[in-house]
Amino acid sequence: MGAVNIGPGALAAYYALLIFPLTVMVWFRIPIISRTITAVARMTLQLLFVGLYLQVVFKLNNPWVNSLWLILMIGVADFSIARGCGLRLTRFAIPLFGALVAGTAIPLLLFVGPLLQRPDLMDAQYVIPIGGMILGNCLRADIIGIRNFYDAVQKSDKAFVHALSQGARLQEAVRPYLRDACQAALLPTVATMATIGLVALPGMMTGVILGGTDPMTAIRYQIAIMIAIFSGTAITVILAILLTVRKGFTPYGVLDLQAFKSAP
């Protein structure tokens, strides 16, 4: 048993539901109408493109093609994080990429390998959707964590350099800021885990149920994916900050404002 197919005509008709929020926006003059229409158009085109591409990827199910797809997704995430945090891509692209690879690959390979016991670690059916979910959460957590970290160091410049003057090495001086940044980045996932199933049914579980799997199997998948997401975000945030520290500070340990796009 699989999910009932949605015909193109039926889906097109379903867009009519958007008339309600758009009418509300017009009525109350909420100034995001054009952004909303653009976002709906982008969502449609992006998902159609990904759908077409994934059909090919799933048909081929070649480990090299699957790996290339993951690397491409990580590259896009890398760019998004640098842009979202105002970091200069030329300096931060490699450390951010390394952190994303570790944060995505470790939980993903443990998921497909020891947990699902798939003979092919790069099986498209598992690697692409699960990798995408982990990576999406790593992206969000990295943006929160890295922004929080560099903003806090910049705002507490006097306290930070005072710690250096007291003999702290760079890794010692950044420790309190690293701790606070990790907390900020991980709290949303912790909050989600604490309320999951009570407030909303998660997307993956819903998808697995719609696919015809029994709810208990769907729940086991969801528990595993939450552990993977939490572990992946923790790995990527800690690594992203630790690996970028050398690029974001001068050799004397002071925050290097030239590392940021808003620098003069």
């Binding site: 306290a159 007291q166 003999g167 090495r169």
Partner: peptide, 19 residues
């Protein structure tokens, strides 16, 4: 050398921000 040389120095800023 800066990391070792700072251990010879004690700094009292004008308006200390103690965090």
């Amino acid at each position: 050398t800066v990391w070792r040389l700072r251990t010879f120095l004690a700094y009292v800023p004008q308006e200390p921000n103690l965090g």
